[in-house]
Design a protein around this nucleic acid. Structure first.
Length: 303
DNA sequence: AATGCTATCAACCGCAGCTAA
DNA sequence: TTTAGCTGCGGTTGATAGCAT
């Protein structure tokens, strides 16, 4: 027999999905009193929730600067790069993706990235997996960025020109965002034993190799600077064949970061890299192939 | 239409670090 | 110095939407 009274039930902490009323209470309370001191906040706001629950709801969902919607290729690229540096430091990674939460990034990693690893029978976090990410996934995302020709943060809806200069592609927008790739044609037949990325922009076959994406840098608010440096890539004996120029730009509302110009020479890197460690390669449609030419489950386009 | 499966993501849990008393 | 409470982090779970059969 239960001795729980109605009053006790009312005093019980609520769990599970938040209602509109609860959201409204939390939003209005924080608007008036600010965030922090979550346990007290929960009580004062009249919420039958723990302080932790309130904090989580606010930080992951209600906070006004939360960005909704799918992660852009730029953000995905950044996550891959930062994760390769810091591992599962979701909060630290999230600090570099304005408007994205650690929870969101963690979910992305577990549901997309780790899933791909599982399907490839690669242990996520293993060197093999990291190499696969760097050699196949990151370049693919770079290519997507190129195809979308979108800015990392805001949608600069503007005229886009893509010029094809032989092995070089240059894409630029009317607001002076430009990206260029020096892309030696490389075909499967010329390197039949190797993994490769094969895709195309316009009528130019493009092959990317890994530029270790250490070049991502972030502006400080109200600070505009220009940097250019050589990028050491993953191939230790070929550290100078990636040239990256990064310019910071100003979007309509914020000083933010941008990757404006990037060029690298993947061929010389590829010449010195032992791709035999991989037993897969990619086909033009983004699926990774194993040595037998069978399609595996690494679907870049699913990214 | 019903059912089962999968993917996604919001929310919870346990723990560790920090701080104030 | 100790301890209790708070906060933040990372791992995990559960609800549910969407898809396939």
């Amino acid at each position: 027999m239960s001795t729980t009274t109605k009053k006790d039930e009312e005093n019980e902490l609520r769990r599970g999905p938040w209602t509109l009323e609860e959201d409204s209470l939390l939003i209005h309370y924080i608007a008036r009193h600010g965030e922090g001191r979550w346990n007290m906040l929960a009580k004062s706001a009249g919420l039958k929730r723990t302080g932790k629950s309130c904090r989580l709801r606010w930080l992951n969902y209600l906070k006004p600067d939360i960005k909704r919607g799918n992660l852009t290729p730029q953000e995905q690229l950044l996550i891959l790069e930062l994760h390769s540096k810091w591992g599962n430091r979701w909060s630290k990674i999230a600090q570099h993706l304005p408007g994205r939460t650690d929870n969101e990034i963690k979910n992305y990693w577990r549901t997309r990235v780790q899933k791909q690893a599982r399907q490839l029978n690669i242990e996520s976090g293993s060197k093999r997996f990291i190499d696969a990410v760097k050699c196949f996934w990151m370049p693919r995302l770079l290519q997507k960025m190129e195809q979308n020709n979108s800015s990392p943060i805001s949608d600069h809806s503007s005229m886009t020109n893509i010029n094809n200069f032989g092995n070089s592609i240059e894409a630029s927008t009317s607001n002076s965002i430009s990206t260029s790739f020096n892309l030696p044609s490389i075909s499967p037949s010329s390197h039949p034993q190797r993994g490769f990325i094969d895709s195309s922009i316009g009528n130019v076959s493009t092959s990317f190799n890994n530029p270790s994406l250490d070049f991502f840098q972030f502006s400080q608010p109200l600070e505009v600077s220009e940097t250019s440096k050589s990028v050491p890539n993953m191939f230790e004996n070929n550290v100078n064949n990636c040239q990256v120029q990064q310019n910071l730009y100003i979007d309509d509302t914020n000083y933010t970061y941008g990757l404006e110009s990037l060029s690298f020479d993947p061929l010389s890197s590829m010449e010195n890299y032992d791709f035999s460690q991989f037993d897969f390669q990619t086909s033009g449609n983004g699926w990774m192939l194993d040595n037998m030419g069978n399609t595996t489950f690494w679907n870049m386009d699913a990214m």
